[in-house]
Design a protein around this nucleic acid. Sequence first.
DNA 1: TAGTGATATGACCATAAAGTCACATTTATA
DNA 2: TATAAATGTGACTTTATGGTCATATCACTA
Lengths: 217, 217
Amino acid sequence: MPNQTFFNLPDKKRQKITDLAILEFAHADYDTASISNIVKQAKIAKGSFYQYFADKKELYLYVVNLAYDQRIAFIRENHPTPEPRDFFESLRWLFHVSVQFNLQQPLLTQVINRAAYGDSPVKKILLARAQATARQYIQDLVQKGMAQGDLIPTIDPDLATFIIVTASDNLKYYIPQKLGVETQKIAEDADFELNMQAIDHIFDQLVQVFKRGMGQR
Amino acid sequence: MPNQTFFNLPDKKRQKITDLAILEFAHADYDTASISNIVKQAKIAKGSFYQYFADKKELYLYVVNLAYDQRIAFIRENHPTPEPRDFFESLRWLFHVSVQFNLQQPLLTQVINRAAYGDSPVKKILLARAQATARQYIQDLVQKGMAQGDLIPTIDPDLATFIIVTASDNLKYYIPQKLGVETQKIAEDADFELNMQAIDHIFDQLVQVFKRGMGQR
DNA sequence: TAGTGATATGACCATAAAGTCACATTTATA
DNA sequence: TATAAATGTGACTTTATGGTCATATCACTA
């Protein structure tokens, strides 16, 4: 956790530092990201920075946790109405809302992706953190789905979770490739609505396969 | 490509350098991996190294390509007999042989994984390379499978490929977690046979889901 | 044996990073 | 206003890297 001094800072200054840190860890992995660059951009002295954060690790953990928190909050805030009728409707909604977050918060998304795949001295802590968010959420959905009889009872819940989570995590590669657009560009693209329709169509197809593959009929 | 000088080296010396380079790029990402360390371990002078390789990039490309080549060769060498009857049997075999490679060549596997996810100045070249191997292989299988009527004709071949490739790529996380064993440990584990059975069982379940989800019935 | 091209060497350079610290400045308190 | 506590500062230290180069050594040929 950052020092209290950091939280005593004027909101604007604290936010500036935070934003620049997010930018830095979105654009470069842990080792390549540079504190020197952050303080230069933020126009604060190195020494000041080290009054707020004990070291690079502390800043990194702070930033990554921030990113995860925001994603969780976003998903919570956008809970679907009406309540989904079954497991696959829930899944369908989760895909949609996840992509919304990725589009609205590309930098935070980058930070999270790097945290999941990259090297860092705090990798183990972050893996645990990752488990606790998206994966746990889907795991709960699966459990509920099985209890409700939406899923075939013979499937291993862990396997079902695995298949869905990995597909979900990697949609970020598939969608741009399929659409022939860069992820970052989708949000600012003139054909935004068209693209969103295409994305939703992909989700429909994907959920269809899952339903066929492990849904009760 | 390395300089001719490198290939003129005595086999033993060249192999030593190659092995240590593989080790280095397996244990650290592009930026963190250290030429200084490689030459120290190999007991050669820095200057000698730079007579073989123009720069760090060249060594890295050489090592990664080596890893890909070996994996392709391994899969080719282990083509199943008798010929698989349908798409899902082929898939079943591909999973099996892929894991065999991962277990027998953990370092090369690490190098490939890092190449696929990490940052490096040659990322684009490597992405293209990755496309050309595992993904292309599965894409071809899917195409053949659809032509043979093994897969439902309504499914998007790209989507089918995507689902299978991502699941396949991420099995390396699921399997150890499910077995409660570290990947690197499986090969040396006393319960090796038992573990292999468990792994094959996972594959059976997975292929089952795919077959149900996108197979013709 | 003399000479020539290929190969080996490691001190050295430029660069950039994380982190420190003695000191300056601001803010709060009495 | 005077004192103390909290903040701010940036030059500096340490450490490591990728890459260079003048020089030494080797292996082969004539």
